[in-house]
C-alpha cells in the first residue's frame, strides 16, 4: 500500500473516531441533568427526519428535485411500517415498491 493512501486512511480513522467516542466517554461519567435528558429525548426523531427528508427531495447530484419514484416508495414504506411495525418487512416492501415502480416510470 502507498504511504499517501495510508496517511489518508489513518487520518480519517482518527477524526471519525473522536466525535463518536468523546460524548460517550464524558457523558456516561457525568450525572446528566433532567433537562438535558429531556432535550436529548427528541434527538432520535430529529436526526432521522434530517436524514430522510433530504434523501427524498434532493437528487444524486445534490440538486433540489421532485422524484416521484422516491416519494411514492417512501409514502408506501411510511404507511406500511405505521400499520405493521416490522422493520424487516418494511425494508423488503420498500425495495419491492421501488423496484416495481422503476419498471413503470
Amino acid at each position: 500500500m502507498r504511504e499517501e493512501t495510508l496517511a489518508i486512511i489513518f487520518g480519517m480513522a482518527v477524526v471519525t473516531f473522536l466525535p463518536r467516542f468523546l460524548p460517550m466517554a464524558f457523558l456516561t461519567r457525568w450525572v446528566v441533568p433532567e433537562r438535558v435528558k429531556m432535550g436529548l429525548g427528541y434527538v432520535p426523531t430529529a436526526i432521522l427526519s434530517a436524514i430522510v427528508f433530504p434523501i427524498l427531495f434532493f437528487n444524486d447530484g445534490g440538486k433540489v428535485a421532485i422524484q416521484p419514484l422516491y416519494l411514492l416508495s417512501a409514502v408506501s414504506v411510511f404507511i406500511f411500517s405505521w400499520k405493521v411495525k416490522r422493520l424487516w418487512a418494511s425494508v423488503i416492501l420498500g425495495m419491492l415498491v421501488y423496484w416495481g415502480l422503476g419498471f413503470l416510470m
Binding site: 427528541y42 432520535p44 426523531t45 430529529a46 432521522l48 427526519s49 436524514i51 430522510v52 434523501i55 427524498l56 422516491y70 416508495s73 417512501a74 414504506v77 411510511f78 411500517s81 405505521w82 411495525k85 422493520l87 418494511s90 425494508v91 416492501l93 420498500g94 425495495m95 419491492l96 415498491v97 421501488y98 423496484w99 416495481g100 422503476g102
Partner: peptide, 26 residues
Amino acid sequence: GLPFALPSLFICLLVFQLKSVRHYGI
C-alpha cells in the same frame, strides 16, 4: 430495489419514533 433499502430502513425507524403529536411536530 437495493438503492432503496437504506432509505426504507430510515423511514421505518422514523415511524417507530413517532409516539406523540409532538414527535410529528419535531
